[in-house]
Design a protein around this nucleic acid. Sequence first.
DNA 1: ATTGGTGCAAATCCTTTGCAATAGC
DNA 2: GCTATTGCAAAGGATTTGCACCAAT
Lengths: 152, 152
Amino acid sequence: MSPMNDPHHAAPEVSGQELTALLHARGQRATPQRLVILRELRRRGEHSSADELRRSIQAELPGTSIPTVYATLDLLVELGLARRVDGGSGPALYDPRVDPHHHMICRRCGRVEDLDQSVDAESLLQAASDRGFAGESVDVVVSGICSSCAGT
Amino acid sequence: MSPMNDPHHAAPEVSGQELTALLHARGQRATPQRLVILRELRRRGEHSSADELRRSIQAELPGTSIPTVYATLDLLVELGLARRVDGGSGPALYDPRVDPHHHMICRRCGRVEDLDQSVDAESLLQAASDRGFAGESVDVVVSGICSSCAGT
DNA sequence: ATTGGTGCAAATCCTTTGCAATAGC
DNA sequence: GCTATTGCAAAGGATTTGCACCAAT
């Protein structure tokens, strides 16, 4: 049941069982909330806010609290299973894609879209390092107006 | 596409008198708050929050309210005289530098430092355009740990 | 049985809004 | 004199914190 065998990419699709293992390795617990939130974040296939996710899992896990959703999303980011995208206005959005890509954020409606266009992250990290800054990740955001907002 | 419409390439040093002219051209008023906030943002020479600026101008303009500072900073960004940097946690910071450059944000202390290292903004904007997204600006943020937090 | 995690409520922080009074033009 | 802009107060929204109970190991 585990056709995934690619040690060279930060697992884009860690299964529920693998999440359980990851957590146990850190002395943490595999709760239904954690498993369901990760699954739901992926199932939605878009950039979701904490509250959207909470509503999205209501049927399956009624009563899940918003602090738990935030804590779980923080944990997923820490585990490298999600990315947090800060649009500047509105709530933070969480992205199930963890492979290198960037984002376009509409300044009118706030929607976030993926952008598969690489930048030279290496030289940015090197430049940061030269200034004594230990860079860990590079986030690129193109701000502007999305097609649906421009059309209307 | 007029270059006047690109906030990241606006005149790097518009004087107080020029700010007055810019405002009048838009039917807006040159208030002491606006002139002093722009001058103070530049004098501080770092990335400042709205509240830091409010405290910073207390001696000169006592009683200046926080809504006024926010409104003024929004206006300066719109005029291309400042950039807003969203770190994701903590308040938004405003940057008096409007020429092309990027940012390093410490995830421990939240401080923002400039990074003079170019990325290929043109190809990013082109890629966005290909997807129907009218990109206006590109923001690049390197997240990590700054030298002072690294405990050198 | 241990102790990490959850839900609840409330707190906190940042930013915006409504409105009467003020001040720039 | 107009009316844009201000200060005040309050609202609003997002996220975090404190704590008692619960449940995964």
